[in-house]
Structure formats: C-alpha cells, structure tokens
C-alpha cells in the first residue's frame, strides 16, 4: 500500500470513528424537525435508506386534508403499507411525486434520505419526548 493511500485509509478510519463515537453522544437528541416522520417498514431489509417525510415542508404547500383525506394516508407513522409499486401506480406519495407536481420516483435519494437503521417514528412527538429520559442515561454512558 502506498503511503498516500494508507494516510487516506487512516483518515477514512478516523472519520468512521468520529461518526461512530460522536453521533450517538453528540446527537443523543436528534434535532430533527417536529413532525418529521421516518418510515422504515421495508427499507432496511431492502438495503436502501429509510424514507424521511418532513411534515413541515408539505404543510407549507398542502393542507392536511389533501393527504389525510383525499389520498387516504392514515394518521399513523408507518401504518399505511406504502411500497414503491403503489407509488409508481399513483397512490400515496405517487399522487404528487410523479414528475408533475413534485420530483419523480427516480430521485430515490431525496426521499430515502434517512440514516440506515433509524426506526419508524414521528420525531419530537410526545411519545418520543416521554421516552427520552429513559434513553438518556444509556446514551450518556457512551
């Protein structure tokens, strides 16, 4: 291995260590936006990043009713059994994410943008806030 390559390898290793040791400690409370939904029903198993749905971005552009009544999204994170086939057939996200109203399904990375392994949840939700103190000591130990 050339010295330059080795240095690069160490730099990469260092970056990996930073990521592993600091992300759980430094970001033990994720600063994600209130209402950001991570949907990880099938993503991890399929080897893609979990999808992140930012409520804030969508509520600037649509009233709740459009998705939760017209498009049939239930008020339950991960409770809608969405898959890519339904989306390309124009259901759920596919009603807009078709290249006409919003970016089309080719842009995998824009929705599937979550950290791998993040469970399905609504960020900053009351349930998550209540659970936070129980998780904190474990996270602080790291």
């Amino acid at each position: 291995m050339r010295p330059g390559n080795r240095a690069r390898a160490y730099a990469a290793l260092g970056a990996a260590i930073v990521a592993l040791t600091l992300v759980p400690g430094g970001a033990r409370r994720a600063l994600a936006e209130y209402g950001d939904v991570v949907i990880n029903n099938y993503s991890d198993a399929a080897g893609v990043r979990p999808a992140v749905f930012p409520h804030w971005f969508h509520r600037v552009r649509f009233r709740c009713k459009v998705c939760h009544s017209d498009l049939g999204f239930k008020f339950k994170a991960g409770g809608n059994e969405i898959n890519m086939l339904k989306i390309i057939d124009g259901q759920f996200c596919g009603a807009c994410h078709n290249g006409n109203i919003a970016w089309s399904v080719e842009n995998c990375d824009l929705c599937h943008s979550g950290k791998p392994g993040t469970p399905t949840q609504v960020h900053e939700s009351t349930i998550q806030q209540l659970a936070a103190p129980a998780e904190t000591p474990a996270a602080a130990k790291k």
Binding site: L31, D109, S113
Partner: peptide, 10 residues
Amino acid sequence: DGIHDPGNPG
C-alpha cells in the same frame, strides 16, 4: 438533524 444520512449525495 440527526435523522438524515449526511453521506447521502442527495
């Protein structure tokens, strides 16, 4: 923000 993957090119 802690939930997005910073390594994601998009």
